[in-house]
Simulated assay, not measured.
Amino acid sequence: MKHKQILVALVSATILFTTPALAGSRLLATSGVTQLEGGAGGGLTPWAVISGYGDEGEASVGAFYTSVDVQDFRLKVNGVSASYDNRYEISAAQQSFELKGVAGDLRQEVYGAKYRLYGDAIYTDLPQVSAGLQYKRLIDGDIAEAVGAEDSDSGLDYYVSATKVHLAAAGGYHFLWNATLRATKANQMGLLGYGGDDNNGYKIMPEFSALVLLSDSLAVGAEYRKKPDNLGAFKEDSFRDMFIAWFPNKHVNLTLAYAELGSIAASEDQNGLYFSLTSWFK
């Protein structure tokens, strides 16, 4: 995303801060924030919640921008998502991965779909459970091919997520947990291709999130995302973060996090700032 586009997004968000809340029937913050691959959830991992605030018979449409800036790399993601009936979700995102000091970016498109199978994160005793998939198309595959990826064009992730909110369960504050199992071949989320010389089959990777709602509009929490280690050339570490998310109204949410991404392409200890903005237009 160019600087002008970022400015337009931020100005739009500023205007939205001063407008009345949307008519969507769901409670504030039940949209989650936007995950790096475009779906509703935490920053690193998808949740079972459906994007936006639409409930039965209602639709939501939104857009987002995310930036992760670590020592040697910068990841920028922008995209859109839409949902209907608090059951169906689709999303599209473009990731741009910059190697600082090197001309050119690695770019990947991600198209997602999610379906709520049963339950409600708040109102049912059992957690809300959703199933989803993410189709990933690598636009710039030369580096992925050079480092030994089996497929430098495209890949498909499948996941199942369970999300539950326990009201007033943490010292009087609401507590949310999410657990996701992802079947994937992706190297660094697909930015280095899919599969490799060490492993070319699907692996089941666990992902976890937990947060406490300090108020109706403010949450703090942490996430963990296990990732496959398919390439003999490079070690791949798990992702972690600690975040704070603010939901001033149903138009917008802001997330700020400290992200620990570990080793990326032989560069160790890639830690830094995560920022994400999501705006809901309907």
Score class of each variant (00 low, 15 high):
Lys185Cys: 05
Ser60Glu: 07
Gly141Arg: 11
Ala170Asp: 12
Leu211Ala: 09
Ser31Asp: 00
Val8His: 13
Val68Glu: 15
Ser81Lys: 08
Glu89Ala: 06
Pro228Arg: 00
Thr19Asp: 00
Val220Asp: 07
Ala219Glu: 02
Leu213Lys: 11
Trp280Leu: 09
Leu254Asp: 03
Tyr135Met: 05
Val11Glu: 15
Leu254Glu: 03
Ser161Lys: 10
Ala92His: 08
His251Lys: 03
Arg107His: 14
Ile143Cys: 06
Ala113Gln: 09
Asp105Tyr: 01
Lys250Ser: 06
Glu89Tyr: 02
Asn249Trp: 03
Ala168Thr: 12
Glu56Asn: 13
Gly39Asp: 00
Gly57Ile: 02
Phe275Ile: 09
Gly104Thr: 11
Asn253Gln: 08
Gly39Arg: 01
Asp198His: 15
Glu223Ala: 02
Gln270Pro: 03
Ser130Phe: 07
Asp120Val: 02
Lys250Val: 05
Pro20Thr: 06
Thr255Ser: 11
Leu261Met: 11
Leu218Pro: 01
Val165Arg: 14
Pro248Ile: 08
Gly141Ser: 08
Glu56Ser: 13
Ala233Val: 06
Ala179Glu: 04
Gly196Ala: 04
Val102Leu: 12
Asp85Phe: 04
Thr278Ala: 14
Ala21Ile: 04
Leu7Arg: 13
Ile244Phe: 03
Ser161Arg: 07
Asp237Asn: 13
Arg107Leu: 14
Phe97Pro: 04
Ala146Gly: 11
Gly24Trp: 02
Asp105Arg: 02
Gln35Gly: 04
Leu218Met: 09
Phe247Lys: 14
Leu211Asn: 05
Tyr224Phe: 07
Tyr258Phe: 13
Ser81Trp: 07
Gly171Val: 10
Arg225Asn: 05
Leu176Ser: 13
Gly232Phe: 08
Glu89Pro: 07
Tyr84Ser: 07
Gly57Ser: 11
Tyr115Gln: 11
Gly52Met: 07
Gly24Glu: 00
Ile90Arg: 12
Lys250Phe: 00
Glu207Asn: 02
Ala113Asp: 09
Lys227His: 04
Ser238Tyr: 06
Thr66Cys: 02
Ser83Lys: 01
Glu268Cys: 00
Glu98Phe: 06
Ser152Gly: 05
Met242Ile: 01
Ser161Gly: 00
Val49Trp: 04
Ser83Asn: 05
Phe239Ile: 03
Ala82Val: 11
Ser209Leu: 01
Leu133Cys: 07
Phe243Tyr: 10
Ala13Cys: 05
Gly41Thr: 01
Ala259Gln: 14
Asn230His: 06
Glu58Ile: 00
Asn253Asp: 08
Leu256Gly: 14
Met205Leu: 10
Ile204Ala: 11
Ser279Met: 08
Val110His: 00
Ala92Glu: 05
Glu56Ala: 13
Val220Ser: 03
Lys76Gln: 05
Ala169Phe: 12
Pro46Met: 12
Leu7His: 13
Phe247Leu: 13
Leu126Glu: 14
Ala13Asp: 08
Gly38Arg: 11
Ser279Trp: 01
